[in-house]
Computed example of a mutant assay.
Amino acid sequence: MSTTTSALPPIVTEDEWRSELAALRAREKAATRELDAIAAQRRRLPMVKLPDYVLDGPSGPVRLVDLFAGRSQLITYHHMWEPGAEWQCGGCTSFTSQFTRLGFLDHYDAQFVVVTQGAIDEALAYREKVGNRMDWYSTANSPFGADMDAPAGGGFAVNVFLRDGDAVYRTWHTNGRGTEQLSHTFALVDLLPWGRQEDWQDSPEGWPQEPTYSRWVDPGEIAARYGASSGHQD
Rank of each mutant, 00 (worst) to 15 (best):
V168Y: 12
S2H: 10
H78F: 01
M47V: 06
L124Q: 02
H107N: 14
A157T: 07
L162F: 03
A37R: 08
H232L: 03
D121L: 03
A30C: 09
F144K: 00
A39T: 10
P208A: 04
T212R: 09
E180M: 15
A167Q: 12
H78N: 12
G153F: 06
Q111A: 04
Y108P: 09
G178C: 04
D15P: 04
E198K: 02
Y169H: 06
L45E: 05
T100C: 13
D135C: 11
G153W: 05
T13C: 05
K29G: 11
D202V: 14
G70N: 08
T212G: 08
A125V: 02
S230M: 03
D190T: 13
D56S: 15
V168I: 05
V65K: 14
L124N: 06
G227D: 01
T13S: 15
E205N: 06
G206F: 09
L55V: 02
Q88P: 09
E82D: 08
E14K: 11
L24V: 12
D164H: 13
D190R: 13
Y108W: 14
W194I: 13
E34D: 05
G155Q: 06
L124W: 13
R133A: 14
E180N: 15
R127T: 09
S230I: 12
A223W: 05
F161L: 12
D149S: 14
P219T: 07
V158K: 07
D166A: 13
Q41F: 11
L35E: 15
P83A: 08
G165R: 02
V130N: 09
G220D: 13
T212D: 12
F95H: 10
W17I: 02
L35N: 14
L192Q: 08
S6C: 07
